Amino acid sequence: MKTIAIVAKPHGDRVRPLLEEMISFLTERGVTILKEKRTAEVLGEKVYNTDNEIREKSDLVVVLGGDGTLISAVRILGMKETPILGVNLGRLGFLTETRASDALATLKSVLDGDYRLERRMKLHSHLLEEDEKVLEIDVLNDLVINKSDVARIIEMSLYINKVLVNEYRADGLIVATPTGSTAYSLAAGGPIVHPSLETMVITPICPQGLSNRPIVISDDSEVEIRIKTGNEKVSITFDGQIYRQLDTEKTITVKKASTCTQLIVPKDKNYYALIREKLGWGGVQC
């Protein structure tokens, strides 16, 4: 790994010392360093590398921040499957698993070729208006259809492989990857799905019918959601970062993306220990 990009989000006084220490370490190893715009801002520098440079030139992307920062790095990489090392400076950190205190030691191991990769499934989504694509995007976590008016509910039809599954009247609907199963879907009552699996989780948000429960489907399924907005204001959010207001009736199609995200994780990772820690099971607090 000769060229490493760093994507850092400002987190008070915690980021800059670690960032400077990391840059010094990489420079001594003869590594070319690419700095995303926010990374340069943390260092007080005006020169930075563009998203395209990071996407095309980097052999590794190091993220200093939380899960949201890592997801922004995934968006920068686009179709590229460049490995990502996430250093947790946020709170929960389901994706940024490496502790700040272990960052340099982990980075050294990676440069020495001693690391473990996890492939994470992504979803590919089309937003259609009158059968024409108006937006096409990949997500690592989820896409969320949600009401914008407080007192309204949304009417939606869910089809899987062209077969009608359900007509929803609800506050919204979430389509999540296994990685995203511990995000908004979990808060809405969805199941925890091991991230090594390749499935889709469909979770209604506060459905009017109490029998409408979350479902898990295979990764070769094609999901179609037809939204009947009427006079209600409806929005759709992709990975919590890309937002669109839907002011007319639209159709959203979702299927497994053709590329994945590759995360560098601790070699001794125990997913169930991570869940216990992050969710506070058995009295364990994160």
Rank of each mutant, 00 (worst) to 15 (best):
L89G: 02
V87S: 07
Y115Q: 05
L92H: 02
H126G: 03
L127Y: 00
S125Q: 05
R99D: 12
G113I: 06
M121S: 04
R91M: 10
L123K: 00
L127T: 08
G113D: 06
V87C: 03
I84M: 04
S101P: 02
K108M: 10
L95G: 01
S101W: 10
G86V: 05
L104G: 09
I84G: 01
S101Q: 15
G93S: 07
L117Q: 14
L107C: 12
L123S: 11
M121P: 00
S101I: 11
D114K: 09
G90I: 06
G90V: 08
Y115S: 02
R99V: 06
G93P: 01
P83S: 01
R91F: 14
E118L: 14
T98Q: 08
L127E: 04
L117H: 08
T82M: 02
L92E: 01
M121R: 03
L92K: 04
M121E: 08
E118H: 15
V87G: 08
G93Y: 10
N88E: 04
L104Q: 03
A105E: 15
T98I: 14
T82F: 00
R119Y: 13
R99L: 13
E81P: 13
E97H: 08
L117W: 04
G93Q: 06
K108W: 09
L104C: 09
K108L: 11
R116F: 05
L123I: 12
L89A: 04
K108N: 15
H126P: 07
L127D: 05
R91G: 06
V87Y: 02
L117M: 14
E97F: 09
R119I: 12
V87L: 04
R91P: 12
R119M: 14
R119V: 13
A103N: 10
D102M: 09
L92S: 06
L111R: 09
T82A: 00
L127A: 07
D114S: 12
K122W: 09
L95R: 00
E81C: 09
K122P: 01
T82K: 08
A105W: 10
E118K: 10
H126S: 06
G86W: 10
G113A: 07
Y115F: 15
R119K: 15
A103C: 07
G113S: 07
L89D: 01
L117C: 12
A100S: 15
I84N: 02
T96C: 13
R91A: 04
R99F: 09
S109W: 11
N88I: 04
E97S: 12
E118N: 13
E118W: 14
A103P: 04
G113L: 11
S109E: 15
L104D: 14
R120M: 11
G86L: 03
T82Y: 00
S125H: 06
